[in-house]
Nucleic acid binder design. Structure first.
Length: 520
RNA sequence: GGCCCGUUCGUCUAGUUGGCCUAGGACGCAAGGUUUUCAUCCUUGAAAUCAGGGGUUCGAAUCCCCUACGGGCUACCA
């Protein structure tokens, strides 16, 4: 683990479905670490469990990172000098290392059927035996190349009997894992079991072997992964040792888990559905069940906001800055500053991050979505202004008036619909509180005067104040009744801003309409 | 059950070489202000006896031990 080594890290998901947001954070931390050290970031697909393969998952993963602007330097979809990067295409490579382990006595063949294994576990659990696993204390009672006569093993192999290759853990060893986040973690090899490294049925290794072989061959310098892997880290250290690669073993860092917002435990897909927030970067439809899951992208989150939010789940720069661009994150990120305890996902904070990033967007960037939403929502009959009757400049002005209220871009319609549609009904409470009998008279008088102006916000404001003063009207009632006439409810930007956007004709018409509909 | 990891405001966390911590920031919450609407925004505030208990020390959130609680792992899954 010399520090001179070129930094090369990998993200190695299994294509078993959509990528969980926790996985995204793991990838992000890998990426930040790599880029800070001017290193490389690889994508490797760990599809050694053919039974769990889900079509489309790999494409989903690649698309998710494209959306998030987290590019890979090497790997599936990109290529590179250490390919193939899909483990199912690396069978030939793994075979030779299985053989090496077998030849050096660090592994052995096992022929136990699933039923026999179940029976063993049951037996051991019932007995007072301290060990409940396939290990040094039990392997001689099982059906394997250690317990069977050599000739019988050979015969079984020649007969094509399905088998697995298990690692032969030497008991009584102290194994130390140097974790960059947690420090030294030491365990005794007695607690490790003889894990399956290879299964003949599909001619593939299990995760443990494939992982070590690939990391070695792909010259991975640091393994940054979730905490759920910490218990198997000693096994991996042992594997590096048994394969003779101890000197080039990568550094390890085990990230704290992402926890569900309520209660405890790992954040899962179910929690998202239950609490109403996405657990996946992109929406996903399960190809088998047809079940749909929401995604951050489709929910209106900005990728920069998701990245920023995720970076702050389990990490903190130690300063008071919270809004970070990707480049700033790369500069500031420190693996040593990653916290050790799990982080609960906080939806409110996620919203806040999105709100911050939305404010940075240009007003013009909302014009398209506004036209689209206005078109979809339809424009009602009567007094209206169709979306295409507004110029881009007018729509941009409209956006400028309401942007600060938005957390998600799609909310823009809720804040602008009244520009397009005259009210069809008027909020009863406001009518009762503000609309006095003389209001139609007052507003018609105002209409007559306003018609003569250039209808700029400042002129309208001045005119209104002047009329209120001269006639002794109740300012609050007049202003709020005007709003009622324009919007139909007690919401929206300043009324004179609304008037200038919808224009003189529409404004006067809406006010006249309210005088008729609400009456005296 | 066994093994491993963890434990500072409701939440994310600062605090890392013990003293400047009467524990700081952010989200959320409350109040006030701005906005003659609503929201935004601004200000202020409540909010952690640093899981509990023992040590070590002149002095501990920071070091050690024990306990409790939480989590992870314990598959021919990753």
């Amino acid at each position: 683990m010399n520090t001179e080594r070129k930094v090369r890290v990998r993200f190695a998901p299994s294509p078993t479905g959509p990528l969980h947001i926790g996985g995204v954070r793991t990838a992000l931390f890998n990426y930040l670490f790599a880029k800070q050290h001017h290193g490389e970031f690889l994508l490797r697909i760990e599809d050694t469990d053919s039974s769990r393969f889900v079509p489309g998952a790999e494409e989903y993963i690649i698309e998710a990172f494209q959306w998030l602007h987290i590019p890979f330097d090497e790997g599936v979809g990109i290529g590179g000098p250490h390919g193939p990067y899909r483990q199912s295409e690396r069978r030939d490579i793994y075979r030779q290392y299985v053989k090496q382990l077998l030849d050096s006595g660090h592994a052995y063949y096992a022929f136990d059927t699933p039923e026999e294994l179940d029976a063993m576990r049951k037996r051991l659990e019932e007995s007072k035996s301290s060990s409940h696993q396939y290990d040094a204390t039990t392997r001689m009672q099982m059906k394997n190349s250690l317990s069977l006569p050599e000739a019988e093993t050979k015969a079984l192999l020649e007969a094509g009997t399905p088998y697995v290759v298990r690692i032969k853990i030497d008991p009584g060893q102290t194994i130390t894992v140097h974790d960059m986040i947690r420090g030294e973690v030491t365990v005794n090899s007695d607690i490790l079991d003889d894990k399956v490294l290879y299964k003949s049925a599909d001619d593939l290794p299990t995760y443990h072997l494939a992982n070590i072989v690939d990391d070695h061959l792909m010259e991975i310098s640091h393994v940054i992964r979730g905490e759920e892997w910490l218990p198997s880290a000693p096994l991996h250290v042992l594997l590096y040792e048994y394969l003779g690669w101890k000197d080039s073993m990568p550094g390890f860092a085990h990230l704290p888990l992402l926890l569900k917002p309520d209660g405890n435990g790992k954040l899962s897909k179910r929690d998202g559905d239950r609490l109403g927030f996405p657990v996946f970067p992109l929406a996903w439809t399960d190809p088998k069940t047809g079940e749909k899951s929401s995604g951050y992208r489709e929910s209106g989150y900005y990728p920069e906001a998701v990245v920023n939010m995720l970076a702050f789940l389990g990490w903190n720069p130690g300063t008071e800055q919270e809004i970070f661009s990707m480049d700033e994150l790369i500069q500031a990120f420190q693996l040593e500053k990653v916290s050790k305890s799990g982080a609960k996902f906080n939806l409110e904070k996620a919203h806040w991050f999105n709100h911050q990033y939305l404010q940075k967007q240009s007003d013009a960037s909302f014009i398209e979505i506004l036209r689209k939403r206005a078109g979809e929502a339809g424009v009602r009959g009567g007094l209206t202004r169709k979306a295409d009757s507004f110029s881009d400049a007018e729509l941009e002005k409209m956006v400028g008036l309401v942007k600060e209220r938005l957390t998600f871009p799609q909310e823009i319609w809720d804040q602008t619909y009244f520009f397009f549609n005259a009210p069809e009904s008027y909020d009863e409470k406001v009518v009762k509180k503000r609309w006095t009998e003389d209001m139609p008279m007052i507003l018609r008088q105002w209409n007559a005067e306003a018609e003569k102006t250039d209808f700029s916000a400042s002129v309208l404001e001045e005119l209104t104040q002047k009329m209120i003063g001269e006639n002794g009207w109740n300012a609050g009632k007049v202003f709020n009744s005007m709003r009622l006439a324009l919007v139909g409810a007690s919401l929206g930007p300043h009324i004179f801003d609304i008037m200038t956007v919808i224009g003189k004709e529409e404004t006067l018409a809406r006010i006249e309409q309210a005088c008729q509909k609400v009456g005296a």
